[in-house]
Design a protein around this nucleic acid. Structure first.
Length: 112
RNA sequence: AGAGUGGAUCGGGCAGUCGCGGGUCGCAAGACACGAGGAAAGUCCGAGCUCCAUACAGCAGGGUAACGGCUAACGGCCGCCGAGGGUGACCUUAGGGAAAGUGCAACAGAAAGAAACCGCCGCUUUUGCGGCAAGGAUGGAAAGGCGAGGUAAGAGCUCACCGGCGCGCAGGAGACUGCGCGGCCAUGUAAACCCUACCCGGAGCAACACCGACCGGAUGCAGCAAUGCGCGUUCGCUGGACGUAUAUCCAAAGGGUGGCUUGAGCCUGUCGGCAACGGCAGGCCUAGACAGAUGAUUGCCUUCAAUGACAGAACUCGGCUUACAGAUCCACUCUCUUU
RNA sequence: GGCCCGUUGGUCAAGUGGCCUAAGACUCCGGCCUCUCACGCCGGCAACAGCGGUUCGAAUCCGCUACGGGUCA
C-alpha cells in the first residue's frame, strides 16, 4: 500500500498556496507542487466556513477515503498536495470526490 | 371517544470487504477484543486535581436570599409554606429588610408624604378667618375597603365584616396555619445606593513536573555582624510570611516524556426514607488522540421512514441552560356516550 | 481547549431608568443656487442583535440565546 506523510506546518501550506499550481472543482480544491523527498506529502484543510465539527470531520474523512482509493491506482511520490474542502463536500459521497480528485490531478499533470 | 397534564426511555440492529486510533500478545508477519453524546455544545454555577505561604489578616469586590432536608460542594435536587394562574390533573415564582439612612417617582395633578385646587360647613360679609377631607378631577400608585351610627359639615370619631400590624394560646421540625384580644401608626421602588445573614484567596491541564541542543540573562546598596532599603515569590490595594552569590535561578526548539483516565464510576438485588438520597451484597472495566482516530461500500431484518433530528470527547466529575426528525411506555385530570 | 470583551440608521458613532417620537457626522433621496457640475443652503428616509423577566415605565438593570472580536503554546 503506498502511503503518505501529512503536512502540519503553516509554512508548508502557505508555500503551496503562493507557489503551487491549483485546480478548483465544485467539491474540492487541489494545490500541488513537486518536492525532492521522493515521497508524497498531503495536507487537508477544512475551514470554519463549511460548518461545525461534524461537517468538518465528515469532509476530512471523505477526502481521506478518496485519497486512499486514488493512491491504489496511481503513484504520487515526489509531490506535495493540499486539498481544501468546500461546502458541497459535506453532502457528497466518496466516488464523487474521487472522480473530482483524479480529474484535477490529471489537469495539473500529476498523474497521466 | 375527544381534549389535556406530568414523568421516563430510545436516538436502529446484525453480517461481509477495504482502511483508521491507541491497548494486549508476538522477533516479525500478524492475531484478538475495544473505540464519541444525551446533550460530548454554551462555559452559566459548583467541586476534584496542580502551582503560588498545604493560603494567613484587613479593606475593596463578587455571589446567594421563605423553611426543612440531600450532597464532596452548589446559585443544583427533593419535600413543604406563602403568593399568582387553571373547572381539574397541575404549572409559575431572584420569595430577607422601605420603622437605619440616602436617592428616584418624568408628564399629568392642589398634593407623590406628616397634602388641600374645585368643593362642604360655621362666622363675617362680598372679602377674609376657622373647621373638614365625603365627592370631583390627574395618575401605574392619592393616605385602609365597604356599610351603619354620628356631625354645623365631616373624619376609625364609634361599631360589624374584610385586609395589614402587634400580643397571647393551640398545632407543626420549621417556614407557617387556626382562634382570641388590642389599637389604627406606616405610597411604591432594594434585578437604585444601601442594611442584615451566610459564602468566596488567586490562577487554570496552553495548569504543573522531569529531560533538554544552540544562543543568552540575573544574583544590587549600606553595615564587622545582626539587620535595613531594594528586588523577587502571579493576587485590586495594604499588611504579613518566605528567598536573596559561586553555585543556584530564569529563559529556551516545528522540542520529548509524564499529567491521561479506576472514578464522589456503572449495572443488578435488597433495606431505610413521602422523595432527593443513603447503607449493604454481588458483578463489570467501558475512547484517550496531540493537526487530532468511527469512513467507503454491499446484503438482510424491524419500521410510515432509518440516505435523513440536534450534533464530534481533548484533565475529570455534579448540575443548569440551550438544540433536537421520529418513536415508545407509565401515571393522572376534565368532558361526552354506553353499561 | 481555557479566559475575557463587544453588538445603536448603509458606515462611523453619542446616549444619568422618564425631557428618546434616540444626538451628531459621512452616505442616499428631493428641492434651492449655477449656463452645467462641484461647493454651499433647506428638507426628508433610515437603527437600540433576538427572547424573557424586574419596574408604573427599559437602548439603559438582570438572565438566556445568536453573532462578531481579543488573548494564552
Amino acid at each position: 500500500m503506498p502511503s503518505f506523510v501529512s503536512l502540519n506546518l503553516n509554512k508548508d501550506f502557505l508555500r503551496l498556496y503562493h507557489k503551487g499550481k491549483s485546480c478548483a472543482k465544485p467539491t474540492l480544491v487541489v494545490y500541488c507542487m513537486k518536492n525532492r523527498l521522493g515521497l508524497c506529502r498531503v495536507g487537508i484543510t477544512t475551514g470554519k466556513k463549511i460548518g461545525g465539527a461534524v461537517q468538518r470531520n465528515r469532509a476530512r474523512r471523505v477526502i481521506r477515503a478518496a485519497l486512499q482509493n486514488t493512491l491504489c491506482a496511481h503513484d504520487l511520490a515526489g509531490w506535495d498536495l493540499v486539498f481544501v474542502a468546500r461546502t458541497k463536500t459535506t453532502r457528497v459521497k466518496e466516488p464523487v470526490v474521487r472522480a473530482a480528485m483524479e480529474d484535477a490531478l490529471q489537469t495539473l499533470g500529476v498523474i497521466a
